[in-house]
Structure formats: structure tokens, C-alpha cells
Design a protein around this nucleic acid. Structure first.
Lengths: 347, 347
DNA sequence: CCGGTTACTGTAACCGGTTACATTAAGAGG
DNA sequence: CCTCTTAATGTAACCGGTTACAGTAACCGG
């Protein structure tokens, strides 16, 4: 049944050390100077009793939770694991607990409370700060959090206008631009297709902007017909490329919004008898695990996901401590040259 | 700075509803019958004040945390995302918070407490129960948890002798057996290689057992030279297969302990001029995301990772509620036939 | 009409920490 | 030697819930 917690309390320690509970607390939190002698007696007593402060009591009294919350819309995707890893390493190193909640299941989210009591699973009630992943909470909630001045860092999502919430993302635009630059400068491509992600996806939009910029910089015309929708899903990208070919459009390169798209793109090209990279150069974005084992190995852009998680968490910890952080952090990406773009001797 | 929590408390609600705090608490927890009239006044007052019970206070008074902890040695691998997803969906549906901690970083794990106070990041102090992933905590800690009768469910790991801790895993042995059965019965293989995972990995051992069993059932001899070490890593598997070929051993099929191994295996075979599946049939285990895009597409065994997470969590919730659960749950796997085994028209 | 339930509600102690305030002792300055 | 700080520590209120215990009113069977 209920594991009756009968661990020792701060009062036990105080008694054994022959001091008051306040002294113990001060020792725990370094909140006031203690004489060397007292400190030692306290430490001895704590070790003796194997004392661990009760988090709930600490939290109740100090109005801090020593926890950080991560909110995302869905747990899935390859970027997810390294991201979480980065987050966990910092929370853990900084002595915070990490709480995770997915907002995907719109299920009424039965709470521990029987009645219909509104309860936000992760909020100022049970965390000291929130990491919010793209599209995980709506703008109204962001406003509410901002209004009560609760520490929040957004990941891969810009702050809504006027809210000025710090955010961390990657160099999507520059990454996209590099890829297209490479197509044009190294492989003399002229008609380059861009495969978009989901319509509302900020990452995809920024990559597209890089695509457009590169075209412009090189004096190449922008043909809207060459921009198709892949939704970051291989099946959709497959269909989109098929359609492109059916409509008889000519092109000599495809920059897919992400690596998943690339799978569908490659399949569609293969089935249509187009050789990669000889007839069509291909490049993706993300450097997913499978990028190197595709045939041909995929040229792509590596996103530093673990770093994103770590950096966002670091910033959140700063906010919690009352320090300042930059409003916008954009982490660098790295282009990974393999064979799908036509390069001969990739590293 | 510190977001001063000035939300309303149970006493505010009591005052507004004209009842005592005990009544509010009873309403919250359904712990005693209330008159319809009172219940309504309480509900109205709570809505009016936008009342949310303070988790820490609740936790301190009731000696429950309403949180479940997940402990793993490292955050990584493909199985991880679906597993976590399964876990999160149940914790969330049951009204629990989900806490995550990785034991990888042996760093001294600086705590919120300045002094050297032993603090287990996830324990009976801040959770109501623990999900422990393979090799995440040592046996001593498991014993300690068992001794205080703390709810624990192990994932992909058997309970140490005598402790009788419930565990959830998948049909590794039967999965392995099915693969080898298939090699022998459908493709008339006679000399089948098994590529092991890490030496202490329980999953790998069970798969190997299935391999041995199938050989035996079909009257095929067991040749220890055909069992090599891949460590669940493609590079190591690559080397191991190379070594096999160099030593001049003959074989007509390879069952790789997992899909990662399969990548290295395929590469080694390709480089040695062996055709897949004509010269050597190949099959993996896991049905990783990339299995279908390997060349040829990989025959493998699908592990129901999300289900494992969900089922383990369900059992943990049962334990927390004081109910019983089976000591050993083994979830079924499904063999996925693709081309690498030699089948012509896989579904 | 009476003792015994049963339904409902209130009072106040308690969970285990933190911290404002008070107190004492020791050192500093004149 | 006296007053003023400063260091070190104790006392007790407080954080916001839960729940043991007690009390009241209505109900029930005989």
C-alpha cells in the first residue's frame, strides 16, 4: 500500500545536533553564516540520520518548486530525443526536476481531482519555469504567463508580437540559403524545387526564405510552380514530386524542407527514372539518422538539436534566477555534404 | 523576478461559499458526502475565484506527490520516443505528472542544496512510483525501494532474484525464433549467423535464445563461430561481419540483434560482393524508422514500444493504488517481412 | 417517545520545511 | 567602561492543503 514515508525530518536533525530547526534550514540553504563548529555538528547529524529535505515541504514554504516543465504538442520526431537530452542534462546539472507534458491528447485530461476543476497540467503551480515547444500552447496562455511574469522560453517558435518572450531556434534561413547556394555555385543548378513543410511551420518558412534569397542573390528567377507542399511527410512529398513530373515541369535540383520529405522525393524520382544526382540534385534538412544510409547518401543541414535544448534550458534557469537573457537566440547549423547533391568526394 | 503566486486558497473559497475549509477539501477529493446545496455553492465559489489547489500543499498534507518518475540510463535511441509517448499518454490521462531523469551523467549532479547532501533526483520523495528502464539504477537501490515497498515497474529488465518487482518487456525470444524459423522454413537457410547486442543486454540474450531454439527445433547444428558481437552498433557489426568473411566462414543468412546492427552488416556484405538476399538473407529486430528505406528494405521484427510504455505505466498506477499487477508482462511482437530475407512480394 | 444510526459539517492539529523577528554574545570605537 | 555593530542562533508564525475528532440534525425501528 502507501509507502509510509518515515524518513527523518529537519526537527530530528535539529534535536540530534542540539540546535534549532532554523539553523538546519540555514545550513541547507546557505542563507546565513554558521559557526564552523555548528556546521560540522549539523552535517554529522544529517549524515547520521540520512536526512533528505522533503521537496513538498520545501516547495510549500519557499514558493519554489525546483522543477522545470517542458510542454510540447506531441512527442515524436527524431529531433525530439536529442532535444530532450539537452534539456535533461541541464535541468539535472542545475538541480531541477524535469516535468514533461504533451498537449496532443485533447482528451479532457482527467485530473487527480474528481470534479471538473480546471487544472493546467504544467503551470506556475508545479514548476518554476516552462520550456514551450513550437505550437504547444496557445497565445492566450502565453499572454497569461507573461502577465504574471512567469519564466518561459520558447523553442523553435517566435514570441507573439509584443510579448517579448525569449526564444531559441536554429539558423533555418541561413541553412536553406547555404543549400541553394551550393546547388547553384557548385553544381550549376538553375531550376531548383523547394518542398515546404506544414503551412504554419516557422522552420519551414525560414528555410524557404533562405531559398528565395539565394535565388535572388544569384539572379535566378523565382518560379512559384517550383515550390510544392511536402508537410514534412515522405508520403506527401512523394505525391508532390510525382505531380510536378506529371505536369511536365523541368527542374535540376530539389531542396526538401526536411529529411523526411527527402525520402518521398527520392522514391518519386527513382520511380520516374530520374537519376540522383545526375539528373536531379537533392538535399534535405536536419541530418536525420537515416540521412547517411539513404541511396545515395543525403546531403543535408545538421541541426544542433541537443544544443537547442541545453541552451533553452540554460536561459530558462537564468530567467528563474532573475537574470536577463537575450530575446532571440539562433544557433548555427552545419551543412553536411554527401552524394545526393552531386559532390564526388564528400568528407 | 519571482512570480509571486497570489492565487486564491482553499480558505478564500471556504469564506466565499460560507463553509469550512474541510468541506472544500471534501468536495475536491470526494472524501465525504456533501449536500447538493453545499456542493453547488462550493463549485460556484471555486469557479468565481478560479481556484486551483496548490500541489505542494496537497502533497505535503496527503503524503502523495501525484507524480510518476521515469529513470533511464541515457536518453537516446529510436525506441525511446514511442516509449515515452506511451508513458506520457497514460500518466497524463490518469492525472499524474511525469518526471524524467537520466542517470547517464555521472557528474556529481549539483543539487539545489549547496552542501553535499545526498539527494536521489527521483525517489519516494518526489514521486508516487517509479518506472525504471533497463540498467538505469543499480540493484542496491532496487532493494532499497523494495524494502520500503515503494511502487516500481521495470521496463525491459527482469527483476533481480527474490525482489519480485513487476516488469514489462517484449517477446524477444519468440521474435528471434520467428525470424530464424522463417529463414529456415521459407528460404532453406542452413548456416545462420546471429549478431549479438551488448554482452549484458537482456533483450539480446533472449533473442539469441530464440535463435538457438529454432536451430534445435529444426535439427540444425549450433556453430559458436556463427555468433558474433555487434553491440547494437552498426560500426561494430560491420567489423564483425568483415572478420567472419576474412576467416572464410560460410553462411547463408544473418539475423542481426537489432536494426542498427543491420546497417553495418549490409554494408559489410555489399563491400564483400555478397548479394542480399541472393547470397545472404538478412533480418533485423526493432523495425526502426530506417528499416524500410534500407537497400534492400529490411525484414525485421516490430517492437511495440509505445505499448510497452503505456502498459508499464498502467501497471505502475495500479500499484500506486494498492492493486496487484502481474510480475511479468511480455508484449507480442510482429514480424515484418520485407525484401532483405528473400521474400518476393512482401505486403 | 427513545436510543442508535446516518448524513453532513466545523474545529483545529498536522504535514515539514522557511523566515521575520527577537535575542545573546563578541568585537569595535572612543 | 559604555554604546554600537555584527555574527550566530532560537522562537514561532506561516505556506495551503488534509483529516481525526467532535458535534448537530434528521431519520429509523420498536
Amino acid at each position: 500500500m502507501k509507502s509510509s514515508r518515515n524518513a527523518s525530518t529537519i526537527r530530528d536533525v535539529a534535536r540530534l545536533a542540539g540546535v534549532s530547526v532554523a539553523t538546519i534550514s540555514r545550513y541547507l540553504n546557505n542563507s546565513a553564516p554558521l559557526s564552523a563548529d555548528t556546521a560540522e555538528r549539523v552535517q554529522t547529524a544529517m549524515t547520521e540520520l540520512d536526512f533528505t529535505p522533503h521537496p513538498a515541504a520545501r516547495s510549500l514554504a519557499s514558493n519554489k518548486t525546483y522543477a522545470i516543465g517542458l510542454v510540447l504538442n506531441d512527442i515524436g520526431g527524431e529531433f525530439y530525443t536529442p532535444l530532450l537530452r539537452g534539456i535533461e542534462s541541464i535541468t539535472s546539472a542545475e538541480g531541477y526536476d524535469l516535468l514533461i507534458h504533451s498537449t496532443r491528447n485533447n482528451q479532457p485530461a482527467k485530473t487527480a481531482l474528481p470534479k471538473a476543476i480546471k487544472r493546467r497540467p504544467l503551470s506556475e503551480n508545479n514548476t518554476d519555469g516552462l520550456l514551450i515547444f513550437i505550437n504547444a500552447v496557445d497565445e492566450a496562455e502565453l499572454m497569461r504567463l507573461k502577465k504574471i511574469n512567469f519564466p518561459v522560453v520558447l523553442i523553435h517558435q517566435s514570441s507573439p508580437k509584443g510579448l517579448d518572450i525569449p526564444m531559441v531556434t536554429i539558423e533555418n534561413q541561413s541553412g536553406g540559403q547555404q543549400v541553394v547556394d551550393h546547388f547553384i555555385e557548385e553544381h550549376s543548378c538553375k531550376r531548383i524545387v523547394f518542398v515546404q513543410g506544414p503551412p504554419d511551420n516557422e522552420d519551414s518558412k525560414a528555410r524557404e526564405k533562405g531559398y528565395l534569397l539565394s535565388l535572388k542573390n544569384h539572379g535566378l528567377p523565382y518560379d512559384p510552380e517550383l515550390v510544392i507542399e511536402g508537410g514534412f511527410e515522405s508520403a506527401q512529398a512523394y505525391e508532390a514530386v510525382k505531380g510536378l513530373i506529371k505536369r511536365g515541369l523541368s527542374f535540376d535540383a530539389i531542396f526538401t524542407g526536411d529529411d523526411d520529405n527527402a525520402i518521398g522525393v527520392i522514391q518519386a524520382l527513382n520511380e520516374s527514372g530520374k537519376r540522383i544526382p545526375d539528373d536531379v540534385a537533392v538535399a534535405g534538412f536536419d541530418d536525420s539518422l537515416f540521412a547517411r544510409i539513404l541511396t545515395p547518401p543525403l546531403t543535408t543541414v545538421r541541426a544542433p538539436n541537443e544544443l537547442v535544448g541545453a541552451e533553452a534550458t540554460r536561459q530558462l534557469v537564468n530567467l528563474i534566477r532573475g537574470e536577463n537573457t537575450p530575446l532571440r537566440t539562433v544557433l548555427p547549423v552545419e551543412m553536411i555534404i554527401r552524394r545526393s547533391c552531386g559532390c564526388k568526394n564528400p568528407s
